[in-house]
Amino acid sequence: MILAGLFLSAPACADLVVIAHPKSGAEQLSKEQVVNIFLGRFRQFPSGIAAEPIDQAATSSEKAVFYQRLVGKELAEINAYWARLVFSGRTQPPRQAASAAQVLEMVAANPGAIGYIERPKNESRVKIVFDVEK
């Protein structure tokens, strides 16, 4: 199922970007800043606004591609990472959106939210702060 999904969505995920609220104060984020925010190390924009990362659905190809491109890990590994923190630590994984549209909505609605989606066309509610390149 996952493989089929990957195959089906791969061409669609060719251009993922990290989006934030325009009032987040962030114009552009480094890859390290993106990693720190999404993996719970440092969830704060350079402007001092707390960052709230949002994952796509666990089964979405965007999530897998995003983490693959960001830290070179499979989702299983990412899940295992979060499992250790969730069991005994205080740090929580990103909130999970049901879809890319919800991610867009949630980022547009919350200045501290940050998520990743397919590069949007003509969308001014969110600001692209990181281009998840290959």
Binding site: L39, G40, R41, Y81, R84, L85, S88, G89, R90, T91
Partner: peptide
């Protein structure tokens, strides 16, 4: 690996554990 996770996340609780 767990310790490195704790350190990465600066999660004192996990480290304490």
């Amino acid at each position: 690996s767990t310790a490195s996770v704790a350190c990465f996340a600066k999660d004192a609780q996990l480290a304490k554990e």
